[in-house]
C-alpha cells in the first residue's frame, strides 16, 4: 500500500474496504454468495433433479425418458418384494456396520483420548487417518485377496478349525466396517477428549466402579459424538455398491440396484426412485439424531 503520510486521495481498494466496513450485510453477501450458489445449484439442485426424475418414466421401446408425472416407479418399488428385501438388507448392513464400528471405535477412542499419553495422541490420530490415504478400491481389493478361498484369513483361522466368511454379506459388513471405522473413531475421540478426566476421577471417588462410570458418566456425555460418528458409518454404508460388488458375492444392496438401472437397464427414472430410499432413511435418521444434539458434534 502507499504511505499514509501525504494523505493522498484514498485509493479504490481503500474506499472499497471502507464501504465494506460500513455495510456488514454487503460484506456478508460478498463472502457467502459463491459458496451459497454452489450449495443451492450444484448440491441441492442435483438432489432436486433426482427427486424430479424419479417421477418420470422410460419408454421401454425407445429408451427415451418420458417426462410425464407419475408415481409408477415408487409403486414398483413398493410392490415388488425383491426391492423391499434389498432395501431391508441394505438397512441391516448399515446398522450392522454402525454397531460394529461403535463397538470397536469407542474403546479405541477412549484409549486414545484418556489412557494414552498426551504426546502420543497426535501419532495415534495419524495412525487412524492413515488408511484414508489409500484408495478405496485398493483397500476393497486387498480384502478380496484376504478373504479369498485359502487366503490369509482362511489360513489364520485354520488352526482353530474355522474358515473365513468367504465372499458374501458377512464379508461386505466386515469390509465396510473396516472402511468406515475412522469416521466413527474421530468424532468419538474428539468428544472424549473434551470430557474432563476429573469427571472420571469424581465418579470413582464417589464409589462407582469403572463399568458403572462408563455407563453413567462416559456414555451419556459421549453419546452425541457416537451419534455423529454413526451418521457417517450409516450413510456411507447405505450408499455403497462397490464393496459389495468386490467381496459381496451375489448379494445386492440398494446401491447395486441404482447402478444397474443407470447402466445396464438404462432406466434413470427408476434408479432415481431407488436412490430416494436411502435419502429418506437418512433424513429420518438425521431428524432423530438432531434430537440428541448430535448435529452440533459434526
Amino acid at each position: 500500500m502507499t504511505a499514509v503520510a501525504g494523505r493522498p486521495a484514498p485509493g479504490l481498494r481503500r474506499r472499497a474496504a471502507a464501504l465494506l466496513h460500513r455495510r456488514p450485510l454487503l460484506r456478508l453477501s460478498l463472502l457467502l454468495s459463491a459458496p451459497l450458489a454452489w450449495l443451492v445449484v450444484a448440491y441441492l439442485g442435483a438432489l432436486g433433479a433426482i427427486f424430479l426424475t424419479a417421477f418420470w418414466t422410460t419408454d421401454t421401446f425407445t429408451g427415451e425418458i418420458v417426462r410425464e408425472f407419475t408415481a409408477v416407479n415408487f409403486q414398483t418399488l413398493w410392490d415388488e418384494p425383491v426391492y423391499r428385501t434389498i432395501a431391508l438388507r441394505s438397512l441391516g448392513v448399515a446398522v450392522a456396520v454402525t454397531a460394529i464400528d461403535m463397538a470397536i471405535g469407542l474403546p479405541m477412542a477412549f484409549y486414545m483420548a484418556k489412557v494414552a499419553r498426551p504426546r502420543h495422541r497426535p501419532m495415534l490420530v495419524s495412525a487412524i487417518l492413515a488408511p484414508l490415504w489409500a484408495a478405496y478400491l485398493v483397500k476393497a481389493y486387498a480384502w478380496r485377496v484376504m478373504l479369498a478361498e485359502g487366503g490369509p484369513v482362511d489360513q489364520a483361522l485354520e488352526p482353530f478349525g474355522l474358515s473365513g466368511p468367504g465372499y458374501g454379506l458377512t464379508a461386505t459388513v466386515l469390509v465396510l466396517s473396516y472402511l468406515w471405522l475412522p469416521y466413527m473413531i474421530l468424532p468419538v475421540y474428539a468428544g472424549l477428549e473434551r470430557l474432563p478426566g476429573a469427571l472420571l476421577d469424581a465418579s470413582g471417588d464417589l464409589g462407582a466402579r469403572p463399568l458403572r462410570t462408563f455407563r453413567t458418566v462416559v456414555l451419556p456425555l459421549v453419546y452425541p459424538s457416537l451419534v455423529a460418528g454413526s451418521i457417517f458409518t450409516f450413510s456411507l454404508s447405505l450408499g455403497d455398491y462397490i464393496t459389495v460388488k468386490i467381496v459381496g458375492g451375489r448379494s445386492q444392496l440398494i446401491g447395486n440396484v441404482v447402478y444397474d438401472n443407470v447402466g445396464a437397464a438404462n432406466n434413470l427414472p427408476f434408479a432415481a426412485a431407488v436412490a430416494t430410499v436411502p435419502v429418506v432413511v437418512m433424513l429420518g435418521y438425521l431428524a432423530a439424531a438432531r434430537r440428541t444434539g448430535a448435529l452440533r458434534e459434526l
Binding site: P196, A198, L199
Partner: peptide
C-alpha cells in the same frame, strides 16, 4: 482403588457431572 476408599474429594474445578 478410589471406589474402595472411605474418602471423598472436592475437586479444584469441582468436576460436577454436566449432564
Amino acid at each position: 482403588a478410589p471406589f474402595d476408599r472411605d474418602v471423598n474429594t472436592v475437586f479444584q474445578d469441582y468436576a460436577l457431572f454436566p449432564h
